[in-house]
């Protein structure tokens, strides 16, 4: 009996909440908000193939591929009220090699937003939906190289990064290549790893987003790959040149929380 009572109370509370939220937003007055994903490595701008970087393990590396999903974007006002972008319009694949994908552009009600929340990856519900609900960037369109989908183990690769490093052992193709393909939505019929990470960004220090019609507020984020290699776990290329669907990937995915930083907002 108890769980039902809890659910009942929870649903009342939830209903109460959502009722309170509505008047804060004029959903018929939507205006553009842009979120810019500017990939960097430490103090340097990220340049695919040509840039040379060193991680905290002292390993020199370059990057040949970097792409990741951003989804389920929410914005929050100073009073705590939250607006969730309609989910069908809230999936983005950021590809370092394609400058056009650098911005996640959404529409939110006019207003001032003090924080921002999004998922790095693809939520589990969408990961199990009918193929008709996985269009655009969610269509399993790529192949082994640039694809963001595991065909053999149905699910999206949330974050894919590859590059060269003398610290990596020679692979069958003769290259000193490292490969990080991080995904895992928790499993469909049996529970398994869940690397879906919700990132929250406080905009107050770097500048709140003032969203209004006729303007495009742009929240400029820096995504620091140096933190991928060292935040809560120090990831060494020599020790872990390939991380894909494995329990170790959950440690790597926790480093995602350190990668995102708000630089400034252009209103």
């Amino acid at each position: 009996m108890k769980p039902y009572i809890f659910l009942f109370i929870a649903s009342i509370v939830w209903m109460g909440c959502s009722k309170d939220e509505t008047p804060n937003f004029q959903e018929n007055k939507l205006a553009p908000l842009s979120i810019e994903f500017d990939n960097i490595v430490g103090n340097m701008n990220l340049q695919l193939n040509t840039g040379e970087y060193t991680n905290s393990s002292g390993e020199k590396f370059s990057l040949s591929l970097l792409q990741y999903y951003i989804s389920n974007i929410e914005v929050q006002k100073a009073d705590g009220s939250i607006y969730t972008v309609p989910q069908d319009s809230s999936y983005f694949l950021i590809k370092e090699a394609d400058p056009l994908t650098r911005f996640a552009k959404v529409k939110v009600p006019e207003g001032e937003y003090t924080s921002l929340r999004f998922v790095l990856g693809v939520d589990s519900l969408r990961s199990t939906m009918d193929i008709s609900r996985r269009t655009g960037v969610l269509a399993p369109g790529g192949g082994m190289d640039d694809g963001m989908y595991w065909g053999w183990n149905s699910g999206y690769i949330f974050f894919k990064m590859e590059g060269l490093s003398s610290a990596a052992p020679v692979d069958p193709s003769g290259q000193h290549k490292f490969r990080y393909h991080i995904g895992g939505f928790g499993g469909y019929s049996a529970p398994t790893i869940n690397n879906i990470k919700t990132i929250t960004i406080d905009l107050r220090a770097g500048g709140v987003a003032k969203v209004r019609t006729g303007r495009e507020s742009n929240v400029h984020l820096m995504i620091d790959i140096a933190k991928f290699f060292d935040h809560t776990t120090k990831v060494s290329i020599a020790n872990n040149p390939t991380v894909m669907f494995s329990t170790y990937s959950t440690l790597v995915a926790n480093n995602f929380f350190g990668m995102f930083r708000h630089d400034h907002t252009e209103n």
Binding site: W150, W152, Y188
Partner: peptide
């Protein structure tokens, strides 16, 4: 059993 939907 890595794939849970025939469509995929």
């Amino acid at each position: 059993g890595g794939v849970f939907d025939l469509d995929l």
